[in-house]
Amino acid sequence: MGDAEQMWITVVPALEDGEEDEAELVLVGIDPASGDPGQRVVDMLLDRGHEGEEGVFYLLPFDLGVRYERTVDRLAVLLLTSPEVYDHMVREYREDLAGAAAHLRGAPLVDGGVLLLRREITTDFDPATGDGNQPVVLLLREGPATEPDLFSAFDEGEAALAVVGTWGEDE
């Protein structure tokens, strides 16, 4: 599947709060079993979360963050990590991934971060809010999936949900 098949602008049922006017969010499907090194590194970094309340894990902005780019009719989502976090995590925990992901680390930095994943679609949706950019919702499920498949897999406990904030905020 291409980028457009793994990125959606939608209401995320697991995050609904019962209001009539549900907010649309940017949803990106991540396949941790993919051969794509960027998706595999994203999955690895999500394990770096720091537990707040029971069952809720938080990522620091330099662990994994999102940056949006907008052109006339396209919206791009970039998932970034700091070079230090990337180097530590790949060396310490996923040496098997180091060779496959070397091109990610060797590429020019984007806003001081290692670009792990870039997805883009044609849309007029603008995720910018009065307080900055919206977070991105990642749904992790093995294998490519349609949007309804991701939601049903999450409901059945076969997928994980992560909300990733804006890159570089609160550093």
Rank of each mutant, 00 (worst) to 15 (best):
M1S: 14
G2R: 07
Q6K: 13
M7K: 09
M7Q: 13
T10H: 09
P13M: 03
A14T: 04
L15Y: 04
L15I: 05
D17Y: 06
G18E: 01
E19C: 07
E20M: 14
E22Y: 05
A23L: 11
E24G: 07
E24Y: 12
L25Y: 06
V26A: 04
V26H: 05
V28Q: 03
G29P: 02
I30C: 05
P32K: 02
P32S: 00
A33Q: 12
G35I: 04
D36I: 06
G38I: 02
R40L: 03
V41G: 07
V41Y: 02
D43Y: 13
M44E: 04
L46W: 06
D47I: 07
G49C: 10
H50T: 14
E51C: 12
E54K: 15
G55H: 13
V56Y: 12
L59E: 07
L60W: 13
P61V: 10
F62P: 13
F62G: 05
D63C: 10
D63K: 07
L64M: 08
L64N: 08
G65Y: 01
G65P: 08
V66S: 07
R67I: 03
R67A: 06
Y68I: 13
E69Q: 15
T71I: 08
V72I: 08
D73Y: 09
D73V: 12
D73Q: 14
R74S: 14
L75F: 09
A76V: 12
V77M: 09
L79E: 06
T81V: 12
S82H: 13
P83V: 13
Y86K: 15
M89Q: 15
V90Y: 09
Y93I: 02
D96I: 07
D96Y: 06
L97P: 15
A98C: 09
A98E: 12
G99Q: 14
G99N: 13
H103I: 04
L104P: 13
R105H: 11
G106C: 06
G106M: 11
G106Q: 14
A107W: 01
P108D: 00
P108E: 00
V110K: 10
G112Y: 02
G113E: 00
L115K: 15
L117K: 02
R118I: 03
R119F: 01
E120I: 02
T122A: 04
D124W: 04
D126G: 05
P127W: 00
A128P: 00
A128I: 01
G130A: 07
G130D: 02
G130L: 05
D131P: 03
G132L: 01
L140W: 00
L140M: 04
R141M: 01
R141S: 03
R141A: 02
G143K: 05
P144E: 00
A145C: 09
A153R: 11
D155K: 09
G157T: 08
A159G: 08
A159T: 10
L161Y: 03
V163L: 03
V163R: 07
V164W: 00
V164N: 05
G165W: 05
T166Y: 01
W167D: 00
G168H: 06
